[in-house]
């Protein structure tokens, strides 16, 4: 399937994709649908086995990207405030001494949380999350099933999120 085939699938499922974008909480779903269309135009054209799945995934990514952009902008805003003499905020990107200490603490905590879920889960987490290897490839590499990879990732994420909450509350 080339990109024109993908375009046909997009057009045939336009309403479904729009509903999907709305269900993801997008108030500007029409805009995002347009963005999805633009992305399809510039997507590398290779064989796509399940075009509708592919479009769902792209739609999901469009919304996730939107959330990331908003968060980045907030972070930049905070960094800017600090750089221009505003109130010192602890989430700034500025590597102040205090921030370095916090980063070290968080790193130690993340490492400890990761170790608590076991060696394989920790290694699978790093391979997928940090090296960016897709889950199927990770499963093949570790010679485990895909559901094992999913289970390990769930454990690792959960342990790290819980550790972060303990830290934030402390």
């Amino acid at each position: 399937m080339d990109s024109s085939g993908l375009e046909a699938v997009f057009l045939a499922n336009r309403d479904t994709l729009l509903r999907f974008l709305r269900s993801l909480g997008a108030s500007d779903a029409e805009d995002l649908l347009h963005e999805l269309w633009v992305r399809i135009q510039s997507a590398p054209t290779g064989p796509i086995a399940a075009p509708l799945s592919y479009l769902y995934r792209m739609a999901n990514n469009v919304v996730l990207d939107r959330h990331r952009t908003v968060r980045q902008a907030e972070k930049r805003e905070r960094a800017w405030t600090e750089a221009t003499g505003g109130a010192s905020l602890d989430r700034s990107e500025e590597p102040s001494a205090e921030r370095v200490v916090i980063a070290r603490e968080q790193a130690a905590l993340a490492e400890a949380a990761l170790q608590s879920v076991g060696d394989r889960a920790a290694r699978i987490f790093r391979r997928h999350r940090i090296d960016g290897v897709e889950q199927r490839a990770v499963a093949a590499e570790f010679e485990v099933s895909l559901s094992t990879v999913e289970g390990d990732l769930r454990k690792a994420y959960r342990a790290m999120i819980e550790a972060k909450r303990r830290y934030d509350e402390a």
Partner: peptide, 26 residues
């Protein structure tokens, strides 16, 4: 997602949360 409007918010909060903690891996 369509079952309850709170699901999308929970999903995105979790996705970003995971990205945040993953970024702190030492």
């Amino acid at each position: 997602l369509e079952a309850d409007p709170s699901h999308a918010a929970a999903y995105h909060a979790m996705a970003l949360n995971i990205e945040d903690v993953a970024a702190t891996v030492p």
